[in-house]
Design a protein around this nucleic acid. Structure first.
Lengths: 187, 187
DNA sequence: TCCGAAAACTTATCGGCGTTACCCCTTGCG
DNA sequence: CGCAAGGGGTAACGCCGATAAGTTTTCGGA
């Protein structure tokens, strides 16, 4: 799995995570992989799960380091989200791109494995937004819907930046999306 | 190319667009493809370009059919965007997923081919939003930035729905994103 | 200490993939 | 009539995921 992540980071191409390349990297014959993983998509799932764990850890660290102001915490969380996607575009693309899901039908991967992947991050974002609402720094009548909307805005920017590296983004596009979708008060 | 699009629509998996499968579909031997396309990623690019053309046509049709109210036109444009992604998730994933771009480095595809893909759609959305601002139905101090932000919101929702089909989306998530990011007035 | 079962790894093989080299046949035009 | 160019075919290479069957290593209990 470490080898798989390394291959992804080095090449920036998830198709480089091949059963045989991983085997070469760890110095064993290709079929020996099947003693540890039932099939190739499962390797991908493991990589994605690990990436999500690290992703959530970074978000949580950013929030904890942002002091006690909910507004600052929300900005820290969102910027950490965008920074992870920018620092590891290939991981982000793999995590959210769903390329390996088409092959899901006839493998050992369950739908639940996939559905619960981002729950922890979503919960953290919701919690942070909720704190902003509690202190009056954000106005929202529907916490869950606005949290989802905010996440989708972040995802849209993060994903598109992870796909097309060069694009003339407006300089304040990130804060614009965050403040707008989070309904932050102007103070 | 028709065969390639058909394969994509039927299987819902862009990896099904294989050089050999396309050749089988049109009834020729695999290497004969190279008389028409220099390599396989170029086939993908052609498919994506065709999809973008159809995409833009549907957006334009929706706007034209929405009467003279800029606000209605904007909603029509955005909903047409989301509808296309929902009706053709595999196309949308292929158009914006950037899977075939990693292989871009050593093929005949130029960076410009990729960069200009969505320009027409972006321009249409910007124009529609601009009309809303002109009539006072939307408030914005930076047309381009807000248009990009609106697009990113639409893209986030469209892409995520195209990847994970089953998710408990808030029922009004689309309109919530549109009205918020477009800064539509409440009237 | 020894032994046997399970775990871990191997080689051989299959079919599919993109790609290349090389050959063949038709078409059209001087 | 000749011949170049366009559009087809075969054979082959190396890569891929996957399976089958055999071999080595590991290790806990008698």
């Amino acid at each position: 799995m470490t080898a798989a992540v390394a291959l992804l980071d080095e090449t920036g191409d998830e198709s480089a995570i091949t059963l045989r390349s991983v085997a070469r990297r760890v110095g064993i014959a290709a079929p020996s992989i099947y003693r540890h993983f039932p099939d190739q998509p499962t390797i991908m799932l493991a990589v994605v799960q690990q990436a999500f764990a690290e992703f959530e850890a970074q978000l949580r660290t950013a929030v904890n380091a942002a002091g006690n102001d909910p507004r600052q915490q929300l900005f820290a969380c969102c910027h950490a989200y965008l920074r992870y996607a920018q620092d590891h575009p290939e991981r982000y693309r793999t995590m959210f791109g769903g390329l390996w899901m088409p092959a899901l039908h006839d493998t050992s991967i369950t739908a639940n494995d996939v559905a619960t992947l981002g729950d922890a991050c979503m919960h953290l974002l919701t919690q942070t937004l909720s704190d902003c609402i509690a202190t009056g720094q954000a106005t929202s009548t529907d916490l869950r819907a606005d949290a989802v909307a905010l996440w989708l805005g972040l995802h849209g920017l993060a994903h598109q930046r992870a796909v097309t590296v060069t694009y003339p983004w407006p300089p304040d596009i990130a804060d614009r999306i965050i403040t707008t979708l989070a309904h932050l008060t102007t103070t």
